[in-house]
Design a binder for these strands. Structure first.
Length: 487
RNA sequence: GCUGCUAUAGUGUAGACCGGCCAAUCAUGCGGGCCUUUCACGCCCGCGACUGGGGUUCAAAUCCCCAUAGCAGCACCA
């Protein structure tokens, strides 16, 4: 009977079926190690994860680090941590920079098949030809020459920009983006942090190579990859490989936070942000720091699904998911923002007991010794029409405003009286039993005081009664630093 | 500009492939009520949408066409 109290009876929508998935799937999450994961990554990561769980199979983490310009050496570990936090069922991990020889070999095979050629044209020149649907001179070189040029590329006989491998597609393709797109490039700098190389595969090549080599059966990715899917099909066709099943979800707008890795990095360097977990950022670690549970992120993302429509991410929905998780477990405490200290006339000293959780008496109580004076939120006294206030778990007081100074007088213990008078029930703290507490919100810090026992909740999410949920972020001589989670 | 995708309440989502059971689902949000020593949780009630216009049909949110809007791609990034 008691077990039912916290049960959520909501039936979760299942994701739409994927064709050809009945016998199990092989899927992958393929981030680029340029920084920590954010909500946008979480969508791809969680959706793929959910399908692997739904059909059974393997879930590959593939680190796509084939662009040394966009690799942050720290991100290899950062990404792993974020994935661990999300609780993804990764069964295998591969790193593309360790697989360069594989791509080189496949490239040679593709050239032999006539599916690719080495182009030594100037970029701008090629672009003009492409727009004019005209072949560049390199396109008709014999296979032998292409193989020779490819060997020279690997031999570092070309400098950056002097040679590139292109996939032979269809120069008359109506979409210029499809026409003989590049597959390998030469990069003299920066050096790759993990491997010594100068010839790098471009995403469309390495992705096809790995999806095939790793046996990936289904790919869920954003619709910004639709053109890539189409390009990749040319490579599959050249090799005669089986194409995975693709699904492209729509663009997701996320308001109020910074998601751009470069913007975040600059902001951190310049001191605008305190770090990757600054609450103004949309990183998973920022959410974690604020007290958002990974399951809430998962649930919110699954509810969004894989629709192709562009959507805007709803913080309300995420908060709602998180509240369901956190409300049953968060202990309750008093936090008095903007406190003003007042003496209460006519009251005897006594000790108040307040439940740590209203639905679970067994968890016990907090004790608040009242000795004559209390602090109350200034906002509660701003309304001068209020004549009666109940201090939660203590007693009722009448309020009289003598000019700017409110005077409180004890009027009784009866909860019924307070209810009858429709008196607000507010949080308070004994004047001599409180700890400074800062509540950090996206709109700025709120200074106040909280119960001293909050110090025992370090790292946990609590609920400040009538204020909202907060994660206890740090304890110091200055008091408690709490991060506002949501109402 | 070229190529393509999408269009259901404030937000997200179901229904659309196989027209009728859809005067359109669920969640969130908002409003009201109940419960309650929190403005939390829970429960109840309510608000709120098929982008527009044509067409096909006995019947269209669902199929077709046009318009409009949004988005994506057109990188030697992923």
């Amino acid at each position: 009977m008691y077990g039912a109290i916290f049960a959520t009876h909501e039936h979760r929508k299942v994701l739409p079926e994927l064709e050809g998935a009945a016998g199990g799937v092989v899927m992958r999450f393929a981030p680029n190690p340029s920084g920590p994961l954010h909500i946008g990554h979480a969508r791809a990561a969680v959706l793929n994860d959910a399908y692997v769980k739904q059909y059974g199979g393997t879930y590959i983490l593939r680190i796509e680090d084939t662009d040394p310009k966009r690799v942050d050496p720290d991100a290899y570990e950062t990404v792993r941590e974020d994935i661990r936090w999300l609780g993804l069922g990764i069964t295998e991990t591969v790193t593309q920079s360790e697989r360069l020889p594989l791509y080189y070999d496949l490239c040679r095979q593709l050239i032999q098949r006539g599916g690719a050629y080495v182009c030594t044209c100037d970029t701008e020149r090629f672009k003009e030809l492409k727009m004019a649907k005209t072949a560049c001179p390199c396109r008709d070189q014999p296979v032998e020459k292409n193989l020779d040029l490819w060997a020279k590329m690997l031999d570092h006989r070309f400098a950056e920009g002097e040679a590139t491998v292109r996939i032979r597609t269809d120069l008359n393709h109506p979409d210029p983006a499809m026409r003989d797109f590049p597959a390998f490039r030469i990069l003299d700098s920066p050096p790759h942090p993990k491997v010594k190389a100068h010839v790098y595969p471009l995403m469309n090549f390495s992705v096809v190579a790995d999806d095939h080599l790793l046996g990936v059966t289904h790919v869920i990715r954003g619709k910004d990859h639709i053109a890539n899917t189409r390009r990749q099909r040319f490579i599959y066709d050249h090799f005669g490989w089986k194409v995975p099943v693709y699904r492209h979800y729509g663009r997701m707008g996320i308001e109020g936070v910074v998601l751009s890795t470069s913007q975040m990095r600059n902001g951190i360097r310049e001191g605008t942000y305190t770090g990757w977990d600054d609450i103004r950022l949309g990183t998973l670690r920022a959410l974690a720091r604020r007290g958002i549970r990974p399951e809430a992120v998962k649930n919110a993302v699954l509810a969004i699904g894989i629709g192709e429509t562009d959507i805007s991410f709803s913080w309300d929905n995420l908060y709602s998911e998180n509240r369901k998780l956190v409300d049953p477990v968060a202990n309750r405490y008093f936090f008095v923002p903007d406190p003003i200290e007042l003496h209460i006339s006519g009251a005897q000293s006594r000790t108040a007991h307040a439940l740590l959780h209203p639905a679970d008496e067994k968890r016990g109580v907090r004790t608040l010794p009242f000795t004559g004076s209390v602090v109350l939120p200034a906002a509660e006294l701003a309304d001068r029409s209020r004549s009666l206030i109940r201090l939660k778990d203590l007693f009722n007081v009448s309020v009289e405003h003598d000019h700017a100074h409110p005077h409180l007088t004890y009027t009784g213990d009866s909860l019924a009286d307070a209810r009858a008078a429709k008196a607000p029930i507010v949080q308070w703290l004994p004047a001599d039993c409180q700890t400074p507490c800062t509540l950090r919100t996206p709109d700025g810090d709120i200074r106040g005081v909280c119960e001293p026992v909050v110090k025992t909740e370090l790292g946990k999410v609590v609920q400040f009664e009538r204020v909202g949920f907060a994660k206890i972020d740090a304890i110091s001589d200055d008091g408690v630093m709490a991060y506002f989670t949501h109402k």
